[in-house]
């Protein structure tokens, strides 16, 4: 790694901090203009105005928004994410219960989907225009088009209700054997794979085809290099940049965007935590979740860019 790469990382980190700051301000502003606040939400439909006022004072909601934001920011800088207003539990404690579940689901899905997507993408690029490619395109496009709640509900109906092979609900805390792990995770992982494999496979196919059309590949082919070697040894290393980016985007979705899957399988992950936080107008929790998603996203994109740079000798040795 040379100074150029280090400079890039440094610049990205600086930009990331600015991005996080802006995002936190925007999220704060948007949550503030939503109708109702944490006090009203907590007291519900039948609260009296006096009660709401008293609870607002208790929750510190009577202070101006800017002050509350600055207060939140200063405590964040000292490492304190604040306390959830809806149940007076520290935000870190709430997140600590959910982050491992989310990471577990994301890791299991990534382990299955990334190799699968690469094989599908490279396979259809190699057989471009052929029957396999046609079938693959049809299949992946269909998967992109079908909403995940439909995939999930159908999968539950077939595998859990009718056949009774798998569990309709997923609990991250009750796993003692590998078989149980499979039973629990099979359906959510399958549903998520349907969503992200298609996207990654399409991107991989496009990136590899792009390389296969270039003169150096044609040269290699004319030299008599076998098709498999052409793809794996010559084209693929040059396609790593775009593929890594596609994978990073899909994985960032796994960390924060799987609300539907979490809801259907009753899986206690971070996405449903954020939805709760917004419904309860729980500012500290909303901010913490947003910061987490944003950081994860920026990190993944940074890693993808690094992959692109390191896989490209021209950029690497500049």
């Amino acid at each position: 790694m040379n100074s150029n790469t280090l400079w890039l990382i440094g610049r990205r980190l600086g930009a990331a901090i600015v991005t996080l700051l802006i995002v936190s301000m925007v999220v704060f502003a948007i949550t503030a203009v939503l109708p109702g606040d944490a006090a009203q939400q907590s007291l519900g439909q039948f609260a009296t105005p006096e009660q709401v006022a008293a609870l607002r004072v208790k929750m510190g909601l009577d202070q101006p928004g800017v002050l509350r934001y600055l207060h939140w920011l200063t405590s964040l800088l000292s490492g304190d994410l604040g306390v959830s207003v809806s149940n007076a539990v520290p935000v870190t404690e709430l997140m600590a219960g959910r982050v491992p579940s989310t990471l577990m689901l994301a890791a299991a899905t990534a382990l299955v989907s990334v190799p699968l997507a690469l094989i599908l993408g490279i396979g259809s690029a190699m057989g471009r225009g052929g029957r396999i490619d046609g079938f693959m395109s049809f299949f992946t496009l269909m998967m992109v088009a079908v909403p995940e709640f439909l995939v999930a509900t159908l999968a539950v109906l077939i595998f859990a209700v009718n056949l009774g092979w798998l569990s309709a609900l997923s609990y991250s805390s009750e796993i003692t054997s590998p078989l149980q792990f499979m039973r629990t995770y099979a359906l959510p992982v399958m549903t998520l794979c349907c969503v992200i494999v298609a996207q990654m496979a399409r991107m991989t196919r496009a990136a590899v085809i792009d390389q296969l059309d270039s003169p150096y590949v044609e040269m290699a082919r004319l030299k008599g290099v076998s098709p498999v070697r052409v793809v794996l040894r010559h084209a693929l290393p040059n396609a790593i940049g775009p593929i890594a980016n596609a994978i990073a985007l899909s994985l960032s979705y796994l960390l924060g965007g799987v609300v539907i899957v979490e809801t259907i399988f009753n899986y206690p992950g971070i996405a449903s935590l954020m939805v709760d936080a917004v419904t309860n107008r729980d500012m500290a929790l909303v901010q913490a979740c947003t910061m987490l998603f944003c950081t994860a996203y920026l990190t993944l994109v940074l890693i993808a860019d690094l992959c692109a740079i390191l896989s490209n000798p021209r950029l690497r040795n500049q």
């Binding site: 509900t153 859990a160 209700v161 569990s167 309709a168 609900l169 809801t263 399988f265």
Partner: peptide, 17 residues
């Protein structure tokens, strides 16, 4: 537990979960 989605709740019942 709580299952917000009604079809999922019914599925969980019918699958014996």
């Amino acid at each position: 537990i709580g299952i917000g989605d009604e079809p999922s709740r019914v599925n969980a019942l019918l699958s014996g979960d």
